[in-house]
Design a protein around this nucleic acid. Structure first.
Lengths: 122, 122
DNA sequence: CCAGTAGTTCAGAATTTACGAATTATTGAA
DNA sequence: TTCAATAATTCGTAAATTCTGAACTACTGG
């Protein structure tokens, strides 16, 4: 099978439409410390966005399969968008859409999280 | 045992101090639809605040023990304060304290939730 | 002291989450 | 085209969490 043929078989990952996204879903996805940190970094926009780039967030490396599940939860709750880019997957936050639907929500969460980080570092 | 003696045995319920409260804890507590609804009502301040008053939120009545667990989660995450008042327990939200620690967070969550409710009712 | 009401605790079942091993999807190079 | 390498997903099952009925505790007023 040629490369050109294969391109049509790439199954896209599931993403909820904006009106399928719920507050509970967002809160649940971000209630896990690892997912909250991943999302905060993606929303900040200053990091490499593939999955394995987040392997060493804490003291112990997060297993690949666990990380994949975390990204799935973030994606299916509507917080991020994931697109294939060659071998890796490119993840971006859906902040702009989300802020239209739930004004101030994401901002408040991210802000609270960074405030908390700052005060625990001292 | 006399009533006067018994009063000293009343063990107060555990409440985290304001600086033990975490964003993840808040998000987790409110990621459950039942807890989110209970908290929204308490924060709104327009409802009777004992535990059993929330028994019939959905279509099926929530079992007493489940409801008790939900209140425990809300309490231990720092979202509500529970005090004995005779046989019942009086629950109030800790919104004011919380807003000092995480400005805008609770407001944004409650607002998003009520917006969601409105749009689903149509 | 008793009956009644509100809430908690306990224990097992049901559900969800974590993660190693195997698998899939893709690339660039031989 | 075939292969080795890399990124990520899926699968199976072990571990942790949640739900809930039954038993229990904490209180009240009579």
């Amino acid at each position: 099978m040629s490369r050109a043929d294969r391109i049509f078989l790439m199954k896209p990952l599931f993403h909820p439409s904006i009106d399928e996204i719920t507050v509970e879903g967002i809160l649940f996805a971000l209630s896990d410390p690892v997912r909250l940190e991943i999302f905060a970094k993606l929303a900040g926009g200053d990091t490499v966005s593939n999955c394995l780039a987040f392997q060493n967030l804490g003291d112990r490396p997060i297993p690949k399969s666990t990380l994949s599940q975390h990204f799935k939860v973030l994606r299916e709750s509507g917080l991020i968008r994931s697109e294939r880019r060659g071998v890796e997957i490119h993840n971006t936050s859906r902040c702009k859409e989300l802020d239209k639907k739930f004004p101030g929500l994401i901002t408040a969460i991210i802000h609270s999280f960074s405030k908390q980080r700052k005060s625990s570092k001292k």
